[in-house]
């Protein structure tokens, strides 16, 4: 693990990355559940962990954490769960319960106060876990895959609710997720972790526009190609060449949105300056579109309408021509990017 990450107060920083990239390790280190061997962690003005020997335990850090499956204490009522952080700080039972009820009221959950965690829904459990984490007004809020335990229907509703709560929170929020949509809706900034390192960081728009690795491109649902640029052309590593509207030179990434590509039965004439033959590998329905993955030079993911898939008879193995306008291809230097990003990305 080797990552330099800053999460400003009042903002939500999403940490995304594939399994094993170190997201959970990072969160546990910030929480104080696992010490670090190198570097240091600061929360607010307080250095909580430093390889030179400083280590403040989780119980003395100004943090709140929402775990993946919420971990509400099953033997306590919802009220006592929310009051737990106050009790741990020496607040008397009665006062702590009163504050917990206030907090539950703000969350619109006060009618659940006397219930046990086994008697509430997943979405309610998530909001109670958040209320429990926030009742001590921590400097940092750590959210570990807060939607992973919910079904798709509940997710949308709780996402909106969480988004509202987070905008009221004045501390720094770290949100670990593998869902780009969650990061998009909830986060101000995104940090992409790969193999324990920061692969990319920035606003969602920046990262989505110019992914710096195969993983990020897949996450954002764009095609990422690597090659070398010269005289308005990019010679791709995997074979093939693209005409681009850029005078950049040297090693570059080129991204093509799946919706920027069109498919034709015959070699097209016209303004699209990039055209190459390809063969359908897979066809998959995504909402109201159809995502087709093509083998060719280069390989590409393409989003088409169901009508055009039908009219072109695009079944696996079918052949056609793909075209992309030069202006639809975004080209940017591949300065210090992982080697893995050299081919079409298949989410």
């Amino acid at each position: 693990m080797d990552a330099d990450i800053e999460a400003p107060p009042g903002q939500v920083t999403a940490i995304v990355g594939p399994n094993g990239s170190g997201k959970s390790t990072l969160l546990r280190a910030v929480a104080g559940l696992a010490p670090i061997d190198r570097g240091s962690i600061r929360i607010g003005d307080c250095v909580v962990d430093d390889a030179d020997g400083t280590f403040i335990g989780a119980e003395d850090r100004s943090i709140g954490m929402v775990f993946q499956d919420y971990l509400l204490f099953p033997h306590m009522t919802v009220r006592d769960n929310v009051a737990f952080g106050l009790r741990a700080r020496g607040v008397r039972t009665r006062a702590a319960r009163a504050r917990a009820d206030e907090s539950l009221h703000e969350f619109g959950l006060v009618e659940l106060a006397a219930r046990r965690p086994s008697q509430i829904s997943g979405g309610q459990a998530q909001r109670i876990a958040l209320a429990r984490a926030l009742i001590t007004h921590p400097d940092a809020l750590l959210l570990d895959e807060p939607f992973a335990a919910l079904d798709a229907g509940t997710r949308a509703a709780t996402r909106a609710d969480l988004s509202r709560r987070l905008s009221d929170f004045t501390g720094a929020t770290l949100l670990v997720t593998h869902e780009p949509l969650e990061a998009l809706v909830l986060a101000d900034r995104v940090v992409v972790l790969e193999e324990g390192r920061v692969a990319q960081a920035g606003t969602m728009a920046e990262v989505a526009a110019r992914p710096a690795s195969a993983y990020v491109a897949a996450l954002m649902g764009v095609n990422l190609l690597r090659g070398s640029a010269h005289d308005g052309r990019v010679t791709l590593r995997g074979g093939g060449e693209l005409i681009v509207a850029s005078t950049i030179k040297g090693e570059v990434f080129a991204t093509i949105r799946p919706s920027a590509v069109t498919a034709h039965r015959q070699r097209p004439e016209g303004s699209a300056r990039n055209a190459w033959p390809a063969r359908v590998r897979t066809v998959e329905e995504i909402g109201d579109r159809v995502r087709v993955s093509f083998d060719g030079q280069p390989d590409l993911l393409v989003d088409l309408t169901a009508a055009s898939v039908a009219s072109l008879a695009l079944a696996p193995g079918a052949r056609c021509w793909l075209t992309v306008k030069a202006t639809e291809i975004d080209v940017y230097p591949a300065a210090s990017s992982p080697e893995s990003a050299e081919h079409v990305i298949r989410p």
Partner: peptide, 24 residues
Amino acid sequence: RFEDAAVTLGASRLMVLRRVTLPL
């Protein structure tokens, strides 16, 4: 992980034992 949750809420080791571990 219930103990982890209690620790992140500020509970001392003894409080974790008394209020979380033993009841569980």
